[in-house]
């Protein structure tokens, strides 16, 4: 190998760094794309009436199937739908389930089919203190928009997190 003058080494290092950053950006994009399923108005309207209309990519298909078949007993409430809405939403969830990178990597259904019980969710939120979860403005892990200011647009990027005090 021929020794390169320092300036060339410097350039090579910069190029390598730029490459790494591009790769990271591509990964982030990948997730953003995966989460942005073509919206289903009925899903927004029905499921989004009580909680954020969670991106379907965040749970594996098996979890969505189970949730959709037990709606009359949905985390302590009756969330039953008429047959037409039930079928339309089930089909759409099935088509767009599990597309998030973290779910593709580990498609095991989380405990109780709760997004908040997936390993990646627990890991990503490990720095959030218990006192923050208890704030009236937060109250529940289902209240994504309390901190993720663009959650309703499917954007959970760090840049748009604002944790209430």
């Amino acid at each position: 190998m021929i020794a390169k003058p320092p300036s060339t080494r410097h350039h090579a290092l910069l190029a390598a760094l730029a490459g790494l950053m591009l790769a990271a950006a591509a990964h982030a994009d990948d997730d953003a794309r995966a989460l942005a399923a073509p919206p289903l108005p009925r899903y927004q309207q029905e499921c989004g009436a009580c909680h954020p209309a969670y991106p379907p990519g965040l749970l594996p298909a098996a979890s969505w199937q189970r949730l959709m078949s037990t709606l009359p007993r949905h985390f302590g409430t009756d969330a039953s739908l008429d047959a037409a809405a039930q079928n339309e939403i089930t089909l759409w969830l099935d088509q767009h389930a599990g597309t998030a990178r973290k779910v593709r990597r580990n498609p095991t259904p989380p405990a109780e089919d709760r997004i908040s019980r997936t390993a990646w969710f627990v890991d990503e939120h490990r720095e959030v203190p218990a006192s923050t979860w208890r704030l009236p403005a937060v109250k529940s892990a289902s209240n994504c928009a309390a901190c993720h200011t663009l959650a309703d647009k499917g954007d959970f990027s760090e840049r748009h997190i604002r944790i209430p005090r």
């Binding site: 985390f75 937060v138 289902s142 209240n143």
Partner: peptide
């Protein structure tokens, strides 16, 4: 007045 879902806060 507006209310708030008792478990999700919606």
């Amino acid at each position: 007045q507006a209310g708030k879902h008792a478990s999700t806060g919606r």
